Amino acid sequence: MRYLSANDIKTFFSMRNAIDADTEALSLYSSGRADIPLRTNINIPEYNGQSLYMPGYVSGADPSLGVKIVSVYPDNIDKKLPSVPATMITLDAQTGIVNAILDGTYLTQLRTGAVQGAATELLSNENSKTALLIGTGGQGMAQLEAMLTVRNLDKVFVSDLDMDRAKKFCETATLNFSEVFSTIFEPVANPNSVVSEVDIITSVTTSKRPTFDGTLVKQGVHVNGVGAYTPEMCEIPVELLKQANHIVFDTMDGVLSEAGDIIQPLKRGDISKQEISGELGQVINQNIAGRSSEKDITFFKTVGTAALDVVVADRIVKKAEEMKIGMEL
């Protein structure tokens, strides 16, 4: 069995690798090749905790099997421990034997950034030059890297509720990416000041109200809704959804049961299910059309699926075995 830390994974598995793995995972998911049971949630009231178990199996030429364990223990902060520790366990699909343990926190950041990257690559205009990132939390840097990986961007504006945080994020991004990308990172106090000029918008927040004005977006924009993952959260403006020519999800079942961005406007009758194009995997498999014109407005919503975790983790483990990276137990 192999143990792979976040640092181990970073040395050999790139964002490009993760985007390719996510693309494969969603293609298989939309082809009916994934068995993803409902998440099991266990409450631990004595310690103000909750433990979540997300298993999955994706079949195909290179099958993937595993389970991600995520715990939510807010009081861990007082113990100087992570409040949301996560671990990924992979199994050999042919034998059912556990073959690796991975840092689940980094895996989640990587595959979530990568699924947005896959959508941006498929749905945004190829000549996109400017982007806006809203939200600089734990997912922010991976979201930024994914956009930079799939599009040759001249400038990315960065917005956060805390302007100092946005400035520091831009400084870190410059340190992280200046040797690979020539992109300029610019903090903005109000996202609406640049919404009308950007080609790509990625919002990754837990906001319960829209993070930008949907009436200001230009023709041809591509928007990613990454952050809101409960029925109460709603970071995407309904005006954007009404204008969108293509509304695409990572998984229909997941988004329609979890994402307030879609659940709330559907309940109000602001949009109908008939206006939803389908899943990104269907675009990948060419079962439905993606962008058909440079002027199309496209929207992608993700809430995540264990299919992404198991496929990306499996590809990481196989590559680590080839390169003899990680700790063998």
Rank of each mutant, 00 (worst) to 15 (best):
T87L: 14
L132R: 09
L241P: 09
Y57V: 03
D309K: 12
G137T: 03
H222G: 02
A100T: 02
Y47T: 09
Q243K: 15
K324S: 13
K242N: 08
K324I: 07
I325M: 04
H246I: 01
K267P: 01
E279T: 00
M88E: 13
S207I: 00
G32K: 11
P191Y: 04
L161Q: 11
Y47E: 15
V248N: 11
Q50E: 15
V67E: 04
N190R: 00
D22Q: 02
V204S: 10
V84D: 12
A21G: 10
T202W: 01
G225Y: 06
E145K: 15
Y3H: 14
P231Y: 02
F169T: 00
A189F: 12
N48M: 04
V223N: 01
E321K: 05
I134H: 11
S196F: 09
V303Q: 09
S203D: 00
S203T: 03
I77E: 15
F300N: 11
L38V: 08
S272L: 02
V188T: 08
D8L: 02
S257N: 06
G281L: 09
R16D: 14
I134W: 12
V311S: 11
P191M: 01
T95V: 10
D8C: 01
K167T: 04
D296T: 07
Q274K: 13
A244G: 04
Q264C: 06
N285K: 07
D35C: 15
D22F: 01
I271Q: 09
I69R: 13
T130H: 00
S59H: 08
I42Y: 15
N287T: 05
N224A: 13
Q286N: 13
D103G: 07
R33A: 14
I325H: 01
Y3D: 05
K218C: 11
F181S: 08
V58L: 00
G49P: 06
Q219V: 04
N152D: 14
R2T: 06
K68D: 08
T136S: 13
T90L: 09
P187Y: 03
M15Y: 12
V198P: 10
T298N: 05
I262V: 09
V84S: 10
A21M: 08
M141Y: 05
L91Q: 10
G225Q: 01
F300C: 07
T230G: 15
L161E: 04
Q219D: 14
I97K: 15
E258Y: 06
E46A: 14
D162F: 01
G214S: 02
I89R: 14
I69Y: 08
H246P: 03
G220Y: 01
E24G: 04
D199V: 02
P237L: 09
L241G: 11
D78N: 15
K68M: 07
Q274F: 01
A313G: 11
M233D: 03
E197L: 08
M233I: 02
A93C: 11
I236Q: 06
I263A: 10
N41M: 10
T211L: 10
S128A: 14
D250H: 10
T215R: 07
P237D: 05
Y53R: 09
Y57T: 01
K242G: 07
A131E: 05
E328Q: 14
I262C: 12
M15G: 11
D164L: 04
T205K: 12
V310I: 02
T302E: 12
F212S: 12
E275Y: 03
F181Y: 15
Y53W: 12
P231A: 07
T202H: 03
S203L: 06
F12N: 07
